[in-house]
Design a protein around this nucleic acid. Structure first.
Lengths: 210, 210, 210, 210
DNA sequence: AGGTAAGCGAGACGGTACGTCGCGTCTTAGA
DNA sequence: TCTAAGACGCGACGTACCGTCTCGCTTACCT
């Protein structure tokens, strides 16, 4: 209904910035539409008109931030899968370990859990692009024979990512570089071609390729 | 401050039951202290006195429900780790796949993300006991040589559990039995002793031990 | 702080009406802000924003009702002070004698005793205009020589009004027409010029009579 | 129902004292049963058992205080009514003028207005004895011919007392010694025998003066 | 160029729930 | 059995935000 052409870019930016600021300062639970509007010097209606609530605003703010680089870049492909993934995994753990940096992720996760609708948008606009960079690297690795042929790449990505998010959310342990490396090592062992997955075939052959 | 000895058991039960009922009926987002009190036929103050908010009430209700069996039982140990784990993994996926069954988990996860304090209680009272059953089975498997000696068991547990929770939360894919089996298979491959983790040693040796 | 220009006249009227209705039905002790809001179909905040509590609302409602006639009219001046005052005094007694009619006065009096701030507003907006009509009549009577020159008119008004309110409040006796006439007669005797207050007249004469 | 013989005198005194203290400190509006019980170091039930609410407690406390002298003494009778009354009237005005001293009277008046039942007890136990001392003095004055024979003594008492209470409640003016004297002078003029009230005396004389 | 319709800031509005306070009742332990 | 203590069901308090709505105002488009 509203005419997007006449939308105020100034207000949009002020709102997204205010949302990010307040999220850092007070956390998602204390983030209110009224607070965002007041901080941004904006009428509440402007937020409801263009977003519909705090969830989509935060999502937009995050997308904005992450798309600063014009979408996540492809991972390097040096031929050594583990070496290429290590910095990514470490970076994720480092971000999750930092309360300030992960505040927005926390917010998005809450909203994702609260609204199926939001979950879909969040997944497609923010999460998928990031997961896909990993997935694509795994695909090339599989093509190169460094990953077992039968592996489902989506499962493989989650095997890498899932443990870290779980530990972060549930606070079941420290999020350290050692942890990142440990998970990476386990995941590589899971993906690496070996005797186990090729019954009857000589395991050493594929082991050599690794 | 309040005198726990004089606490009303009747009220406590009514509150926990009402909380569970409303959680099923309306979801966590629409669960209010006022609603719980009304349904339980109880004053709001009684809830605030003993719990302090809806989060701790739901946690208590869940703990109550799960501790009905006197704590989670140890997993069976048939000597075949994968076979012993499969039903557990499948059950977790099945529960997460069912919106009604996972409503409470969703609620607790939101609260966990919102409050560090709550997260701690949740982890210790609900999550840890469940994770420990898996961890203990893995420990015995490691002792039996079915899991590599160097594996950190906490990481191993998360390697199994994390991917499923991630897919469930982020709705990145279907939660099916095939998925459960796929993750289990990957995790087993990661844990299983093999050539990869013993550079220079003949991989077949340990393979034989499995 | 709120912008009075944007105030909803509809809500204001509904609130005042609801307050009057509930006052009649249940009395001041059972009158609640919540009840007024519900009856008026209005948010509580609207009451707190513009009034601050039930007291000011009732005051406003009363002022509204009494100012329907555009302020109290001047008393008639037939030249006979006692005759002019008698209907007023009788009317006051009659109103106080009727529980329904005096319910609001009772309410306002309680609030007046409870809050100095409220007392001031009540005095200026409701009471003073009414007392002034009597005072003005007394002033013209004094100018006409029917009231002693030295009489303080405020005291004179209270001499008339005070006894009735005292009996009403303390329930020390019946509030009848005879009582009204009795107080009026006494007050007239107090105000009427006589030997006592005219220095130059032989004081011993009246002293002897005592 | 409760057995008065086993009643704790210690608790009774502590409650009455606490009530008086809190009344002075915070006013009647902020006086609560819970507060009295806490201050007195007493269970709430003890208050509800023996009194039934804060109103009767305050009444009792006041009666206690005033009956310290074993009931109000008779006024002196020097033969000069006005001289005998003046200190009484001035004392009343002085007490009313002092916020601390009149706090209890304020409380009792509110309760009197709120509860007809309470009003009766208050009138009989506290007010009547005090009014009667004045009434008795007026009666002897009437017998001595210093007050007109036809005067209703209850009305006469209220003529003296009513104006002061009205000014005190409604805050319509200052409560000074001059005011006390003014009201007394007016009331004396109303009561004093004179030409006006003695039919058969030439009414024209005073009429002319009006 | 002027008129008009949109977006805008502001914030009042009807609501829902919050977390607190005090009520008057009831239960427990101790004297 | 009375008492101190205080938990309880209840109801109202005054506040915070919700999402909708109504104001003038600015601003850009469209005759």
């Amino acid at each position: 209904m509203p005419d997007a052409a006449r939308r105020s870019e100034r207000s949009r930016n002020a709102i997204l910035q205010a949302a990010m600021d307040l999220l850092q300062e007070k956390g998602y639970a204390d983030l209110t539409v009224e607070g965002i509007a007041a901080r941004a010097g904006v009428g509440k209606q402007t937020i409801y008109r263009w977003w519909g609530g705090r969830g989509p605003v935060v999502l937009d703010a995050l997308v904005e931030k992450h798309s600063g680089s014009g979408g996540p870049p492809a991972l390097p492909d040096t031929g050594d899968l583990e070496a290429d993934l290590r910095p990514v995994i470490r970076a994720i753990v480092a971000e999750l370990a930092d309360d300030r940096l992960s505040a927005t992720t926390r917010a998005l996760t809450i909203e994702t859990l609260s609204s199926e609708d939001f979950a879909g948008r969040m997944r497609d606009r923010l999460l998928r692009p990031q997961l896909d960079t990993v997935k694509n690297r795994l695909r090339s690795a599989r093509a190169a024979g460094q990953v077992r042929a039968g592996v489902d790449l989506d499962q493989a990505v989650e095997l890498l990512i899932g443990p870290m998010y779980h530990r972060w959310m549930m606070r079941t342990g420290p999020l350290t570089e050692e942890y990142a490396d440990g998970i990476l090592e386990l995941a590589m062992a899971a993906l690496r071609p070996g005797a186990a997955d090729r019954p009857g075939a000589p395991p050493t052959a594929s082991s050599d390729l690794m």
